[in-house]
Protein backbone atom coordinates (compact mmCIF):
# COMPACT_ATOMS: atom_id res chain seq x y z
CA UNK A 1 0.00 0.00 0.00
CA UNK A 2 2.67 2.47 -1.05
CA UNK A 3 0.65 5.56 -1.72
CA UNK A 4 2.55 7.71 -4.14
CA UNK A 5 0.55 10.73 -5.25
CA UNK A 6 -0.07 11.02 -9.00
CA UNK A 7 -2.41 14.01 -9.06
CA UNK A 8 -4.46 16.29 -6.84
CA UNK A 9 -7.66 17.73 -8.28
CA UNK A 10 -10.08 19.97 -6.44
CA UNK A 11 -13.62 20.12 -7.78
CA UNK A 12 -15.77 23.09 -6.89
CA UNK A 13 -19.21 21.66 -7.42
CA UNK A 14 -22.74 21.78 -6.04
CA UNK A 15 -23.35 19.70 -2.93
CA UNK A 16 -25.31 16.52 -3.64
CA UNK A 17 -25.31 16.94 -7.41
CA UNK A 18 -22.13 15.25 -8.67
CA UNK A 19 -22.54 13.49 -12.03
CA UNK A 20 -20.30 12.31 -14.88
CA UNK A 21 -20.85 15.47 -16.99
CA UNK A 22 -18.21 18.25 -17.06
CA UNK A 23 -16.28 19.28 -15.14
CA UNK A 24 -16.17 16.05 -13.12
CA UNK A 25 -16.09 13.55 -16.02
CA UNK A 26 -13.28 15.01 -18.10
CA UNK A 27 -11.26 16.14 -15.04
CA UNK A 28 -11.26 12.72 -13.41
CA UNK A 29 -11.60 10.20 -16.25
CA UNK A 30 -8.15 11.17 -17.59
CA UNK A 31 -6.65 9.90 -14.33
CA UNK A 32 -8.40 6.55 -14.65
CA UNK A 33 -10.38 6.71 -11.42
CA UNK A 34 -13.74 5.12 -10.78
CA UNK A 35 -15.92 8.11 -11.55
CA UNK A 36 -19.29 6.80 -10.43
CA UNK A 37 -17.84 5.74 -7.12
CA UNK A 38 -16.62 9.27 -6.54
CA UNK A 39 -20.01 10.75 -7.49
CA UNK A 40 -21.89 8.35 -5.23
CA UNK A 41 -19.63 9.03 -2.24
CA UNK A 42 -19.58 12.79 -2.79
CA UNK A 43 -23.37 12.98 -3.01
CA UNK A 44 -23.81 10.80 0.04
CA UNK A 45 -21.50 13.02 2.08
CA UNK A 46 -22.90 16.37 0.90
CA UNK A 47 -26.63 15.81 0.31
CA UNK A 48 -27.50 17.48 3.63
CA UNK A 49 -25.95 20.75 2.40
CA UNK A 50 -27.78 21.25 -0.92
CA UNK A 51 -27.40 24.72 -2.41
CA UNK A 52 -23.82 25.16 -1.24
CA UNK A 53 -20.67 24.74 -3.25
CA UNK A 54 -18.62 22.16 -1.38
CA UNK A 55 -15.19 21.56 -2.88
CA UNK A 56 -13.85 18.02 -2.90
CA UNK A 57 -10.09 17.57 -3.00
CA UNK A 58 -9.30 14.29 -4.69
CA UNK A 59 -5.88 12.70 -4.26
CA UNK A 60 -5.11 10.16 -6.98
CA UNK A 61 -2.47 7.53 -6.23
CA UNK A 62 0.02 5.78 -8.46
CA UNK A 63 -2.25 2.78 -8.99
CA UNK A 64 -5.27 5.00 -9.82
CA UNK A 65 -7.00 4.41 -6.53
CA UNK A 66 -8.04 7.63 -4.83
CA UNK A 67 -9.31 9.33 -1.72
CA UNK A 68 -11.10 12.60 -1.26
CA UNK A 69 -11.68 15.18 1.45
CA UNK A 70 -14.38 17.79 1.59
CA UNK A 71 -13.09 21.34 1.94
CA UNK A 72 -14.59 24.55 3.19
CA UNK A 73 -16.64 26.49 0.58
CA UNK A 74 -14.57 28.64 -1.83
CA UNK A 75 -13.50 32.04 -0.49
CA UNK A 76 -15.36 33.73 -3.34
CA UNK A 77 -18.58 31.91 -2.36
CA UNK A 78 -18.21 33.05 1.27
CA UNK A 79 -17.43 36.62 0.19
CA UNK A 80 -20.55 36.74 -2.02
CA UNK A 81 -22.66 35.27 0.78
CA UNK A 82 -21.36 37.77 3.34
CA UNK A 83 -21.75 40.74 0.97
CA UNK A 84 -25.16 39.55 -0.26
CA UNK A 85 -24.04 39.29 -3.89
CA UNK A 86 -25.05 37.07 -6.77
CA UNK A 87 -21.77 37.61 -8.67
CA UNK A 88 -18.49 39.40 -8.33
CA UNK A 89 -17.86 42.48 -10.49
CA UNK A 90 -16.97 41.96 -14.16
CA UNK A 91 -14.91 45.19 -14.01
CA UNK A 92 -13.46 44.97 -10.49
CA UNK A 93 -11.05 47.91 -10.91
CA UNK A 94 -13.86 50.23 -12.01
CA UNK A 95 -17.09 48.99 -10.55
CA UNK A 96 -17.32 48.03 -6.89
CA UNK A 97 -20.31 45.80 -6.25
CA UNK A 98 -20.18 45.33 -2.51
CA UNK A 99 -18.45 45.82 0.82
CA UNK A 100 -17.16 43.66 3.63
CA UNK A 101 -16.24 44.74 7.12
CA UNK A 102 -12.95 43.64 8.69
CA UNK A 103 -15.01 41.50 11.06
CA UNK A 104 -16.63 39.67 8.12
CA UNK A 105 -13.20 39.12 6.57
CA UNK A 106 -12.05 37.66 9.85
CA UNK A 107 -15.07 35.34 10.03
CA UNK A 108 -14.31 34.05 6.53
CA UNK A 109 -10.63 33.66 7.44
CA UNK A 110 -11.61 31.53 10.43
CA UNK A 111 -13.63 29.19 8.20
CA UNK A 112 -10.91 29.02 5.55
CA UNK A 113 -7.75 28.96 7.66
CA UNK A 114 -7.38 25.17 7.77
CA UNK A 115 -7.53 24.91 3.96
CA UNK A 116 -5.29 27.86 3.16
CA UNK A 117 -1.57 28.26 2.68
CA UNK A 118 -1.49 30.85 5.43
CA UNK A 119 0.51 30.75 8.65
CA UNK A 120 -1.92 32.66 10.79
CA UNK A 121 -5.27 34.43 10.76
CA UNK A 122 -3.66 37.72 9.64
CA UNK A 123 -2.10 36.02 6.60
CA UNK A 124 -5.43 34.34 5.76
CA UNK A 125 -7.25 37.70 6.07
CA UNK A 126 -4.81 39.35 3.65
CA UNK A 127 -5.44 36.62 1.06
CA UNK A 128 -9.20 36.97 1.47
CA UNK A 129 -8.99 40.74 1.08
CA UNK A 130 -7.00 40.20 -2.13
CA UNK A 131 -9.65 37.84 -3.50
CA UNK A 132 -12.39 40.32 -2.51
CA UNK A 133 -10.67 43.19 -4.35
CA UNK A 134 -10.32 41.03 -7.48
CA UNK A 135 -14.09 40.50 -7.28
CA UNK A 136 -14.85 44.22 -6.90
CA UNK A 137 -15.67 43.95 -3.21
CA UNK A 138 -14.26 46.69 -0.98
CA UNK A 139 -13.05 46.25 2.57
CA UNK A 140 -14.26 48.79 5.11
CA UNK A 141 -12.07 50.07 7.86
Amino acid sequence: MAKKIKAIVKLQIQAGKANPAPPIGPALAQHGINLMQFCKEYNARTSNRMGEIIPAEITIFSDSSFKFNLKSPPTAFLIKKAAGLEHGSSVPHLEKVGKLTRKQVQEIAEIKLKDMNANDIEGAMRQIEGTARQMGVEIEG
Binding site: V9, L11, Q14, A21, P22, P23, Q134, M135
Partner: peptide, 18 residues
Protein backbone atom coordinates in the same frame (compact mmCIF):
# COMPACT_ATOMS: atom_id res chain seq x y z
CA UNK B 1 -9.87 31.88 -6.05
CA UNK B 2 -10.91 34.86 -8.15
CA UNK B 3 -10.33 33.02 -11.46
CA UNK B 4 -12.23 29.98 -10.20
CA UNK B 5 -15.11 32.23 -9.23
CA UNK B 6 -15.13 33.79 -12.69
CA UNK B 7 -15.00 30.44 -14.50
CA UNK B 8 -17.67 29.08 -12.17
CA UNK B 9 -20.02 31.65 -13.75
CA UNK B 10 -19.46 30.40 -17.30
CA UNK B 11 -18.60 26.75 -16.81
CA UNK B 12 -21.08 23.91 -16.72
CA UNK B 13 -21.72 22.86 -13.09
CA UNK B 14 -18.47 24.15 -11.63
CA UNK B 15 -14.72 24.07 -12.04
CA UNK B 16 -11.83 21.65 -11.58
CA UNK B 17 -8.57 22.89 -10.06
CA UNK B 18 -5.53 20.69 -10.55
Amino acid sequence: EAVAELLQRYGHQGVAIE
